[in-house]
Every structure is written in structure tokens, then in C-alpha cells.
């Protein structure tokens, strides 16, 4: 546990340094830059790129979560059961559509910028959350549900106080998958001028500057590892609490 804590601290420190003081890493990246070329990306501040990158992912994943969970709630009620196959089909198609194709196809509608990226990330993020929410709602312990009904909870109370909290850890696993995929995929958004860390990588591709590619890739990669790790911790904490709730019931 202690080892993990030190490792996490080091990663966070590395990330902060990479974003705020990239010039410290000049000697590290210099061998990868073309002779005499710039080593550190300076056209836009890495901080603002990181923030807008994370912002895009947060908005897209947030929307995908709200829509996917609401959809899952709707189709697991008796009244909405008829729509279950249709919503499966829709989220499946969202995942089958290649994100780059979604970007390209939505540019004529939303123009260059962050609009197409949001749509692509949203569609791509729906399926993992939806599938996990369906699993979460589908595997609730029947005895707990009976107890909730027996206590005289209304449908609404059952949903808010029993079903959602119990399904939360499984749903969170879906959100984690969706967020980590989105973090990497958002870089592609910079091909249509969204402000993400992909800008650094693309600048590197266009000018044959591997230092830029490494710099952008490293920052996104560390963000992904740290977010993945943090969400796993939250999941574990939630699962532990739910375990206690189950015991009490």
C-alpha cells in the first residue's frame, strides 16, 4: 500500500511538472527533436490544452453517463421493457461507428472546433456505461428488493435509495472504461481543430518532431493511468460501503 502511494505521488509530481514546467524536460526530449528544431511545444500553454482536454472528456462522459443510465433505468422498468432491444441497438451502433468517421461526418454540421469531438466521444462512451448499468440493475439481490418493497418504499424511493446505490459500483466500472477510452480518443479531435493535447502530437507529426509526439503522448498517458487508478479506488470504496449496506439489510 505504501509503495503504491509513493508511486502515485511520483506520477502526480511528474505530470504537474510536465504540464507546468515543460522546459525542465528539455534535456530528456532533446535527442528526439530534429537538429536545431524546437524541443518543447510552446504555441499554446500545455495547461490550457490539458484543461480543455479534460473538460471535453468530462462533458462528453458526463452526458454519456446521464443518458446511458437514464436509458438503462427506463428499459429495466416494466413500462419500458419493450424498448430494451432498440436501446441496445442504438448504443451498439454508437460503438461501431468509428470515432474518426463521426468527427469527419459531423464537421459539416458543427464546423471545426470542439463540437464534433463532443459528439464522437459521447457516442463512443455510451455503450460501456449502458451495458454496465444494465448488468448492475439486472443483478440486484432479489431479497433486498423484496425487503425494500416490504418496507413500503415507493417505486421512486426504491430506485433512489436501493437500486441506484447498489448498482453504483458496476456502473462506475462502465464510466471508468468510458473515461479512459475518451481520454485517448479526444486527441484525435485535434485533427478538426479541437483544443486538446492531441494538438501537440499532431504538431509533432506534421513537423517530424518526435519530441512533441512523446510530450503529448506522455501527458495523456499519465492522465489516463491516474484517472483509471482514482476511479478504481472510488469503486472499491463504494463496493465496500454497499457490502456493509447489504449486511445490514
Amino acid at each position: 500500500m505504501r509503495k503504491g502511494l509513493i508511486l502515485r505521488g511520483l506520477l502526480v509530481a511528474l505530470l504537474v511538472a510536465l504540464v507546468l514546467r515543460p522546459e525542465l524536460f528539455t534535456p530528456l526530449f532533446a535527442p528526439f527533436a530534429p537538429n536545431g528544431g524546437p524541443v518543447i511545444y510552446q504555441r499554446t500553454s500545455l495547461l490550457s490544452l490539458s484543461l480543455s482536454h479534460l473538460g471535453l472528456v468530462a462533458v462528453a462522459s458526463g452526458l454519456a453517463t446521464v443518458v446511458a443510465v437514464s436509458l438503462a433505468i427506463l428499459v429495466t422498468r416494466p413500462a419500458g421493457a419493450a424498448f430494451r432491444p432498440l436501446s441496445r441497438t442504438i448504443t451498439n451502433i454508437g460503438q461501431t461507428f468509428p470515432p474518426v468517421a463521426v468527427l469527419a461526418l459531423t464537421v459539416p454540421v458543427f464546423g471545426f472546433g470542439s463540437g464534433p469531438t463532443l459528439v464522437a466521444l459521447f457516442l463512443y462512451g455510451l455503450l460501456p456505461v449502458f451495458e454496465n448499468a444494465m448488468t448492475g440493475f439486472g443483478t440486484l439481490p432479489p431479497r433486498t428488493m423484496e425487503a425494500a418493497r416490504g418496507m413500503g418504499l415507493t417505486r421512486w424511493q426504491q430506485l433512489w435509495q436501493v437500486e441506484l446505490p447498489l448498482a453504483a459500483p458496476v456502473i462506475l466500472t462502465g464510466i471508468r472504461l468510458s473515461v479512459v477510452i475518451s481520454l485517448g480518443t479526444a486527441t484525435i479531435g485535434s485533427t478538426v481543430a479541437a483544443a486538446t493535447l492531441g494538438e501537440v502530437i499532431i504538431a509533432g507529426l506534421l513537423t517530424d518532431n518526435t519530441a512533441y509526439v512523446l510530450q503529448g503522448g506522455l501527458i495523456v498517458g499519465i492522465f489516463a493511468v491516474l484517472l483509471y487508478d482514482a476511479l478504481v479506488l472510488v469503486e472499491r470504496a463504494l463496493a465496500r460501503r454497499m457490502g456493509r449496506v447489504q449486511q445490514a439489510a
Binding site: 528526439f32 479512459v180 481520454l183 485517448g184 480518443t185 486527441t187 484525435i188 485535434s190 493535447l197 492531441g198 502530437i201 499532431i202 509533432g204 507529426l205 517530424d208 518526435t210 509526439v213 512523446l214 503529448g216 503522448g217 495523456v220 498517458g221 489516463a224 493511468v225 483509471y228
Partner: peptide, 17 residues
């Protein structure tokens, strides 16, 4: 799994050098 966290765009870029 670590390879998987490298964004696709960077992965393509890193293969070049």
C-alpha cells in the same frame, strides 16, 4: 495495459522514429 493507455494518435506517431 500500459501500451493501451498511449493515445492512438501518439502510438502512430511514436512508430515513425
Amino acid at each position: 495495459s500500459l501500451l493501451q493507455t498511449i493515445p492512438s494518435l501518439a502510438m502512430f506517431g511514436l512508430m515513425i522514429p
